[in-house]
Amino acid sequence: MNNQIRTFRVAQDYGFQIDPSIPVLGYTETVNYETCISHAHPRGQLIYATRGVMNVVVGNNIWVVNPLQGLWIPGGVEHQVTFQKDVNYYSVFIDPSVTKGLPINSFSFDIPMFLKQLVFKIITFGTEGDLEASQRRVIDVFLDELALIVPSATFLPTTNDERLQKVVELLMNDVASKQTIDYYAELSFMSTRTLSRLFIKELGMNFSDWRTRLKLLEAIKRLGEKQSIKEIALNLGYETPSAFIFMFKKHLGKTPSNYILEDENEDKISA
């Protein structure tokens, strides 16, 4: 797999174009195994893909974004996006003149069909400042809808603490691991109590919850790659598919099968 690394032209041009007469700029592209290097731009950005999976890193948080989700990044926030296979990518860049009232933090969210349709419409507006009255009304509705989005739980906090970072890397490199926190504490030359406290302090959750979140994000990624539920369950270290399904539904409110079905139905509607 040849993973090319580049800065997208859209991030260079659209993200840095400050012009209140063009409050939003839409862009779409099909991307295959590429990474957009870490960057920031003055315009806020809504990222969405009708097909494929994106990994987005903002600070010490990692999001795995699938076709049922969008990602909001305020202007000036440094971020890096890695695109998996065949990502049909959409983005809307919002001028600072109209970002008042929009969220001030980055997060992923379950994107409503209505907001998706507004994104698709904005993509057709072009990049000039001669917007028609009907187009400006669409943009106003889009901004109103964007102000209503709320975060989902599908992100993974990471850390700059060197001691904890080693444990996090071990867990991320072996998602199916069934080792206890005592095992990782011993590997890191820490007491179990110290490591447990570090998880709470640095990551905002305990060892067990963080590892579950890691498995959940990996499951979302693999579902996006069309792997079978049985295959995903075994590769994530679950004894049975039913145990995996229980975990998935507990945290996302739907089974993996329903999650896939909703994804496929959304894709048909947007096609």
Rank of each mutant, 00 (worst) to 15 (best):
L118F: 00
L118T: 00
L118V: 00
L118Y: 05
V119C: 01
V119Y: 03
F120T: 00
F120Q: 03
K121Q: 15
K121E: 12
I122V: 13
I122Y: 03
I123M: 05
T124Q: 13
F125N: 00
G126Q: 15
T127N: 13
E128Y: 10
E128S: 08
G129T: 05
D130E: 11
D130C: 04
L131A: 07
E132P: 00
E132Q: 12
E132G: 12
A133V: 12
A133T: 14
A133W: 06
S134W: 15
Q135M: 10
Q135P: 01
R136I: 14
R136M: 15
R137Y: 14
V138W: 12
V138I: 15
I139E: 09
I139M: 10
I139S: 07
D140I: 07
D140R: 11
D140K: 14
D140L: 12
F142N: 09
F142P: 01
F142L: 07
L143H: 10
L143R: 05
D144H: 05
D144N: 14
D144Y: 12
E145G: 11
E145I: 07
E145D: 09
E145Y: 04
A147T: 08
A147Q: 12
A147K: 08
L148G: 02
L148W: 15
L148C: 11
I149Q: 11
I149G: 09
V150I: 07
V150K: 15
V150G: 05
V150S: 13
V150Q: 13
P151M: 08
P151C: 08
P151S: 05
P151Y: 01
S152E: 10
A153H: 14
A153K: 12
A153E: 14
A153I: 13
A153W: 10
T154Q: 13
T154H: 11
F155G: 01
F155V: 03
F155I: 00
L156G: 01
L156P: 00
L156R: 05
P157R: 02
P157W: 05
T158G: 04
T159R: 04
T159F: 11
T159W: 03
T159N: 03
N160F: 10
N160H: 07
D161I: 01
E162N: 12
E162P: 12
E162K: 10
R163P: 05
L164N: 03
L164K: 01
L164I: 04
Q165L: 15
Q165D: 10
K166I: 09
K166H: 13
K166S: 11
V167T: 14
V167F: 06
V167P: 00
V167L: 06
V167N: 01
V167Y: 07
V167K: 00
V168M: 14
V168S: 04
L170P: 00
L170W: 15
L170G: 08
L170I: 03
L171W: 05
L171C: 13
N173A: 09
N173H: 09
N173G: 14
D174E: 15
D174V: 04
